[in-house]
Design a protein around this nucleic acid. Structure first.
Lengths: 214, 214
DNA sequence: CTGCGTATATTCGTCTACGAATAACGGAGG
DNA sequence: CCTCCGTTATTCGTAGACGAATATACGCAG
């Protein structure tokens, strides 16, 4: 088990905000949200409490005390520990130094491209091109806007995300154009596969619509 | 719940191989492996049996029968259903048409860059540059080798992965160079933050080393 | 002052991922 | 002929992710 004690990246965000100052759980959520860290990273707030508990269990954060504001339920305040600072730095270092891991769903999509007709593929890729262009434009304008208030070092992730977005856009556009122009080399074979249908579906058989038998 | 009944991308790979011909579970693993689909996609084989069960439960695949080879344990043969073909195409379509989702760990790493010193960051980014360059070279040569036996349409994912890898390499190299050259605008503020230490760590206190109290 | 929408704050139960363990067979080498 | 080992093939337990539900406070429109 060379793996991280707490693997959820939300845990990294928690360590990062607690490095600034102690706070309670809901506040962590607010701060992380307000920093826009949830834009590129898809944060599942349902996991926050589990993650905080796990960080505490492993000694990366600790309870400072409780705070009570009026009749609201009492809130537990957490602080980062020395071990937590170490974990934060080590984790960040690993994420920065080691490539790998990047699970891009488009890779999965492309790997089953032959299951679709060339025409469908052209259409779908076109839709992605549009969506990607819009997304890139959004990020770009957001970045320009933020750059007036926030130092660049806090916007680095967005710059990176934008660069990747631009690269993806260029590549996908290229593939779609190549398919649309008919210059893609394997179109004939692809169509042949399509015409053959799905050979795995020998006996159509009665497919049980809802939940099969136990 | 507009989400996919079976969310694990390994399920997509299973549907894809079953679309070719019916087979039993371990064979799916071999075929997927031999296609090299496990190179870019990090497949966890421990999940295969769960995923196949779930696909069957939702009627996307169905049992054809069993095969017995000597005294080996009997193997259950699965085929894809019509619903399964629909799911495969719909899933692929969604993956191709809709961007989003791409959870790149580097984004997370960059978002906590200020937690590290500039010098450390330069070093780590340099290491990533090296690793990335090597990885890109590997993929490139593998691609050249495969292109002699395999039609290009089966290598599209690798072309895409390579393009993203190249883009990432260029961007990271750019950032590292900028930091190393000292032309990055916020270096002064960054160092100030570093010097301030971790303010969240007010009271170092006795940090309970192993598993905290219940 | 009374009801309603919104923000605050947390709990719980279900479902899933997947590491690790298990076990039989085939063949290579002594 | 034995035994070791790599491949085939599958099961199971546990930790964890996260959707959905819950509950209370606050501010403001009527």
């Amino acid at each position: 088990m060379a793996a991280r004690k707490v693997g959820n990246l939300l845990g990294l965000a928690v360590l990062a905000v607690l490095a600034e100052r102690p706070m309670h759980r809901y506040e962590m959520a607010s701060v992380i949200r307000s920093r826009g860290k949830d834009r590129q990273l898809a944060v599942k707030w349902g996991s926050l409490y589990t993650v905080v508990d796990n960080l505490a269990r492993h000694g990366f954060i600790a309870v400072v005390g409780t705070d009570r504001d009026g009749a609201r339920p009492e809130r537990t305040i957490y602080r980062i520990t020395e071990a937590g600072v170490g974990e934060l730095q080590d984790w960040a270092a690993q994420l920065l130094a080691e490539p790998g891991g990047a699970a891009d769903p488009l890779v999965a999509g492309l790997s089953v491209l032959p299951a679709l007709s060339p025409e469908t593929a052209i259409d779908l890729l076109g839709r992605r091109v549009d969506a990607l262009a819009e997304q890139a434009a959004d990020v770009r304008s957001q970045l320009v806007r933020d750059a007036q208030h926030v130092p660049r070092m806090f916007l680095i992730e967005d710059e990176y995300a934008l660069a990747q977005l631009d690269a993806q856009l260029a590549w996908v556009r290229g593939l779609r154009d190549e398919l649309a122009a008919g210059t893609f080399p394997d179109l004939a074979e692809w169509r042949r596969l399509q015409a053959a249908g799905m050979p795995g579906l020998d006996a159509p058989g009665p497919h049980d619509d809802e939940e099969a038998q136990p």
